[in-house]
């Protein structure tokens, strides 16, 4: 059955129509935690794409040999292994960002999106569609992270990727950065706004 759905829809569907964050409301904790600045948000998004895509492939390859009773444990072991690799890579090549992200890279293991995709897709599909599904869902997650990180860094710190964006003369005339944007509640409200906008464009997602 999976072979019948086009590869294109597997990768594009999670971007908007079935977005893991704003439609399925998964992985909210990390969206609140890592989006105070844009740079860690992007790195976090890339890490999730990598882990999700490869764990999907691995689970899909061994899906017929995993005993049903212990499948969650097997999935966790695979994800944990990949997360450790990603964490080591970040510490080696992007030490500052990895310090900012601190435990949240490790916490990718408990990210609901991963378990959700492994259970719902990789356990019943062949490796190539599973890979695409992982990339698609990771991208959907990353897009939301980038939007939230963009808004929060712009209004909370007046910078983007660490560069001053709001010109100095604004500050001279009394403009101040919005401290609430740095605090987690504002991330929730920004996500809520994205959901609001997205549902007003997608009528079929609205509750009856």
């Amino acid at each position: 059955m999976a072979e019948k759905t086009s590869y294109k829809s597997i990768i594009l569907n999670p971007l908007s129509q079935n977005n893991p964050v704003v439609v399925q409301i998964l992985g909210i904790c990390s969206v609140l935690a890592v989006t105070a600045k844009l740079e860690p948000a992007i790195v976090m998004g890339l890490s999730v794409i990598a882990v999700l895509a490869f764990s999907n492939v691995i689970i899909s390859l061994i899906r017929n040999t995993i005993p049903t009773n212990i499948r969650i444990i097997v999935q966790l072991v695979v994800v944990a292994g990949l997360v450790v690799i990603v964490n080591q890579l970040l510490q080696a090549y992007a030490y500052n960002v990895s310090k900012q992200l601190s435990v949240f890279i490790g916490l990718i293991i408990t990210n609901c999106i991963l378990m959700g995709r492994l259970e719902a897709f990789a356990m019943s599909n062949r490796p190539w569609p599973s890979f695409l599904d992982g990339v698609g869902n990771g991208l959907g997650y990353t897009i939301i992270l980038i939007i939230v990180g963009f808004v929060r860094e712009l209004f909370g710190s007046g910078t983007l990727l660490g560069h001053q964006v709001i010109p100095q003369w604004c500050y001279d005339h009394g403009y101040q950065n919005n401290g609430l944007m740095i605090l987690p509640p504002m991330a929730l409200i920004v996500v809520a706004c994205i959901i609001w906008i997205q549902r007003s464009f997608n009528k079929d997602l609205q509750d009856k």
Partner: peptide
Amino acid sequence: AFLFFAYPAS
């Protein structure tokens, strides 16, 4: 509350 948390200096 918004003012208090967003612009504590003011």
